[in-house]
Design a protein around this nucleic acid. Structure first.
Lengths: 212, 212
DNA sequence: ACCAGTAAAGGTGATGGTGACTTTAACAGG
DNA sequence: CCTGTTAAAGTCACCATCACCTTTACTGGT
């Protein structure tokens, strides 16, 4: 028999503990039974008979982080024969990836811990490869879509959006060129509000265009 | 309970019966039992316990067309609640898409018929949407990758490759610009052979670069 | 033997986007 | 009121692309 499960790679953006710069974090769940007991694994679980695949991903996400995703997309279905769980039953995992916005530092469920995306512990099963693939997809997609705004609130400055891009891509971007690209993308709408308080000219707040 | 199946959208390029220009074809299987009995559906079947997901896709492809895929990639996992098969059991389908090169017009299995991709009959389940999505992926991917060569033989002229692109994208491409793009892509290697026989200058034969 | 037709192959100039860089605007703090 | 800082706008060189043109080299017919 073949078991079917849904897992989710959940990304959030929070400051790095030492450098204080924005970095990618993701929550993992400590396995409490064999196989791979004690190892960290992606949040997930079996598919309920009465729910959608995306709903199952959203549910396990909520159960582990108490958050609702600001972006959710199917990543890949993994079904290699090396995924046997102990008693010779192979598990096919349909993996989603999600972006969440941790407004307040919510307390997740027990056995859940957030890790820096580039400082992960040893993971159970083939989850390390899955996270690598999810990171690759995130870094690709951030360059040609507007998902970066999913890490931010309803309105944001272009510099804040650039900060998200820089954290995801791990390289500095030219502020002027980034602004031009965003403004010409047609995906941003200028509001008449400004972010004041800094020792500098106030920055205009933008929001993403409503879905078409 | 939730059943698990693997289906494949199989594309081939053959001349259009009336215009004689290259067009996309795909094979469908006539369903012999309820639900959707008599309707046409994507080739597929349950997942064997001893095989990979891609192996299952490759196997059903071979069983229905007697061909081996020149390109095979996972498309998406479909698991909507509307996919119940008759007796209330929902089926999660992991769908692959494939490109094949029908060298000789092979005879497929019974109840299999090839259709023009833009003249499909009414399909079973949600297979019409799946085919639409596969077509979208094919048309996208042909523009930034070298999969078009999977429709051709080991060597081919740039004009033949352009013919594939034009058939997939359904619009004419400038021969000179297409040539330059292909030559600068680094994905093609010139051979020292030429295709002669036409009433014109012989065309150099190329092949794709070996996998890195 | 030569010419006409055809498609391969290569070249040219305008255009638009991008990257590196500069300049001006507008605030907070001393 | 000056200074530091970042926002926002502008400038310029460069490169890829597109539409178009020219040359090359073959086949088939006269």
């Amino acid at each position: 028999m073949t078991a079917l499960a849904v897992s989710t790679v959940i990304f959030a953006l929070r400051p790095h503990p030492t450098t204080r710069r924005l970095a990618l974090w993701l929550p993992l769940v400590r396995r409490i039974r064999a196989p791979h007991q004690g190892r960290w694994a992606l949040p997930g679980g079996p598919l309920d008979d009465r729910e959608d695949l995306a709903a199952a991903a959203s549910r396990t996400l909520r159960e582990t982080t108490r958050l609702t995703p600001d972006y959710l997309e199917q990543l890949y279905a993994f079904g290699g024969l090396d995924r046997a769980t102990g008693d010779a039953e192979r598990t096919v995992s349909i993996v989603y990836w999600a972006l969440v916005r941790p407004e307040d530092t919510v307390a997740g469920a027990v056995n859940v811990k957030w890790f820096l995306a580039d400082e992960l512990p040893e993971l159970a099963f083939d989850h390390a490869e899955i996270v690598e693939y999810a990171l690759w997809r995130l870094r690709n997609k951030v360059e040609y879509s507007q998902i970066a705004a999913s890490f931010l609130g309803r309105t944001f400055t272009i510099a804040e959006l650039r900060g998200v891009h820089e954290a995801v891509l791990q390289r500095p971007l030219d502020p002027a060129n980034f602004r031009r690209q965003m403004e010409s993308s047609g995906q941003l709408v200028a509001t008449d509000e400004f972010r004041t308080g800094g020792r500098h000219r106030p920055a205009r707040l933008y929001r993403t265009v409503p879905r078409p």
